[in-house]
């Protein structure tokens, strides 16, 4: 009996989660509400069944997430029985940091990276699960499954611990931490196939529907609330769109689509030729931008 690739990936992820739970005093699961987080949450339920996972979920809320994401987040936390920690960089919000006037790079740094560091320091987590995959972006291809972070949350790509077999080095000093990536070896297609196979609930924004959008810098931005100020010449149009990736609504591009079911989404993905991070504005700022962000503590 040979295990299928999805069952092998599933077993590897469960192994990683159990290892983190056993080796760390205070782990947390970063929950971004996206499809990868949905899979990660599902796997965490499997790993500790019939018990519940011995760690909370944490969401870094920038206050600019799609409203449907927030509603979905609260529903999933309640259904799955996880504790949910929500952290926002309130100082930055009070200073009026927003994705429009500050640019995507600074905004992301302050609201996401800084917000995350604040929360990790506040709760003194020594391990944090993230849903990143190695196929997402080039600098991620070399990321370890247990990725060491200094006490200032920095990642040093040049002095990563060698990682062999399925033996993970979980030793850290006080203040240092590990980012654990149980989905490292999954691809976007694996994620979708698994969601389909396991009937995992995902935010409805992934499915195509008629939504209000404006075209801005060649991207379709959804008008999720009245904070999106129209520039001269922009007009709100109703289009059938969906999202391949979810983040802050002003920074997340929609794609025109009529794919309203999982098989249709997978079909569309297989037939198109644009990779998913295309829809995230932060990756395009400069060459190697993700690598720089990761060194500074971005997930």
């Amino acid at each position: 009996m040979t295990m299928t690739h999805l069952r092998q990936l599933e077993a590897e992820s469960i192994h990683i989660m159990r290892e983190v739970a056993a080796e760390f005093a205070n782990p947390v699961m970063l929950y971004s509400v996206g499809k990868d987080s949905a899979v990660m949450l599902h796997l965490a339920r499997k790993a500790f069944f019939p018990g519940v996972a011995p760690f909370p979920l944490m969401h870094i809320d920038t206050t600019w997430k799609f409203r449907e994401m927030i509603a979905f987040r609260d529903r999933m936390a309640a259904q799955s029985g996880f504790d949910l920690i929500i952290h926002t960089n309130h100082e930055a919000v009070e200073q009026g940091v927003n994705p429009f006037t500050h640019g995507s790079a600074l905004y992301t740094d302050v609201m996401k990276t800084e917000g995350l560091k604040q929360a990790l320091n506040k709760y003194k987590f020594d391990a944090a699960f993230g849903g990143a995959r190695r196929d997402e972006e080039k600098s991620r291809a070399k990321e370890r499954i247990f990725s060491f972070r200094s006490s200032s949350h920095r990642w040093d790509p040049k002095s990563q611990r060698p990682e062999l077999w399925n033996l993970y080095n979980a030793r850290v000093r006080p203040g240092e931490s590990i980012r654990a990536f149980p989905l490292s070896n999954w691809t976007e297609l694996d994620i979708w196939q698994y969601i389909y196979l396991e009937q995992i609930p995902i935010v409805p924004l992934y499915y195509a529907a008629v939504r209000p959008v404006v075209e801005r810098d060649g991207m379709l931005i959804m008008v999720d609330d009245d904070r999106l100020e129209l520039r001269p010449g922009e007009k709100i149009e109703m289009k059938s769109v969906r999202f391949r990736t979810l983040g802050c609504y002003p920074l997340t591009a929609a794609v025109e689509s009529t794919a309203a079911t999982l098989p249709e989404i997978i079909q569309e993905m297989l037939l198109t030729r644009t990779s998913e991070r295309q829809g995230r504005l932060i990756d395009h700022d400069s060459a190697g931008s993700m690598e720089k962000k990761k060194q500074e503590g971005y997930f």
Binding site: M3, T4, H5, Q193, Y196, P263, I266, Q267
Partner: peptide, 16 residues
């Protein structure tokens, strides 16, 4: 393109 459900079924048996 022709039968995505059949395709997905066939993909469930892939090895690694």
């Amino acid at each position: 393109a022709e039968d995505i459900l059949a395709y997905l079924k066939s993909q469930e048996e892939k090895s690694l």
